[in-house]
Amino acid sequence: MSTHPLDAAGADPFEIAKEAAAQIAERSGIERHDVALTLGSGWAKAADLLGETVAEIPAGDIVGFSKPAVVGHVGTLRSVALPSGKHALVIGARTHYYENHGVRRVVHSVRTAAATGASVMVLTNGAGGIKPTWKPGQPVLISDHLNLTADSPIEGANFVDLTDLYSARLRAVAREVDPTLDDGVYVQFRGPHYETPAEVQMAKTLGGHIVGMSTALEAIAARQAGMEVLGFSLITNLAAGIQETPLSHAEVLEAGREAEGRISGLLAKIVGTL
């Protein structure tokens, strides 16, 4: 039997997120966070560049959070004082859909961020690129998504509008910092296996440019919570069938390591202007 609070019969995921936010406030001494960032593969260094770390909390100490199951995810929650005087909550503990813990656990970090007061959710990931002009190590903005998990974090008859899910305003802010940023439609597959060349072609036919295994479900939960969403993918490789060599997680980590200084600096500058 599962003892995880989000899996319990009758559990209210929003109440558990509120409880988690209260624990973060108590542990960090910061009553309210203004912006939250989930740092995926390749993006972790941004936490060091945003500002002064006020507190670093093992994610497993906070109700509802699980230890990360993926190499490249740090497993901590950090409260960072930004130069503007605002505070950022940096989430280095992402639960992926393919871990089979259910959608509530996947989006708990986002709901907790909203409960801490954050009005902006920055979601980042490492992903495969479909546009052949993109190079490994290139950051791109997410303009929209295709959710191919056949699942949703929203329960019951709550009809949430996703027309402008990835904020055009925030993308414009990002482009003020770096006018060369390209954007594309992110496609979330279930994983954990990589996509087949045929699936990548399907994604391309459907209008996708980026393929990965996270972010879309979290973005939907952020919108349900009333947050403004900024999405970023680090292109770690060209997707299956676009590049000629087999895909590997080691390649993803290597591309992230090579790019992390540059992309983390970019992200820190963008967050500093929000």
Rank of each mutant, 00 (worst) to 15 (best):
T76C: 09
K131R: 13
G265T: 09
D151V: 02
E228W: 00
E15W: 03
A118I: 01
A25K: 07
I57E: 10
I235L: 04
A168D: 13
D12R: 08
L165N: 07
F14K: 06
E15C: 01
I142H: 00
V187Y: 12
L238G: 04
E228L: 02
G184S: 11
G92S: 13
L37C: 11
T215F: 02
L274P: 03
I210K: 01
Y166S: 05
G128K: 01
T273I: 00
A93Q: 10
S214G: 08
D61N: 15
H145K: 00
L89I: 11
N158A: 13
D48R: 10
E176W: 03
L230Y: 01
Q188T: 13
R262D: 10
E218T: 06
D144Y: 03
G64N: 12
V35K: 03
G208D: 10
L217Q: 09
P192V: 11
L82A: 12
D61K: 15
L49Q: 13
I154L: 06
A172V: 07
W134S: 01
S109Y: 06
V160G: 05
R171G: 11
V177M: 07
R169Q: 14
H96V: 11
D144F: 06
G75H: 12
V71S: 15
P153G: 05
I62V: 15
I130M: 07
E218P: 09
M227C: 08
F159L: 15
A221H: 05
N125Y: 01
L146N: 01
A113L: 07
R27I: 00
G191S: 11
V177P: 08
L37G: 02
I130H: 01
K131A: 10
G191D: 13
L82Q: 14
D12W: 09
A222Y: 06
R262A: 13
I220K: 05
A93K: 09
P246H: 08
P197N: 09
A44P: 00
A168E: 14
V122S: 02
G137V: 03
L148I: 02
D144Q: 04
P192W: 12
I263M: 04
A268I: 04
P139S: 00
G207R: 03
P136R: 04
D48Y: 03
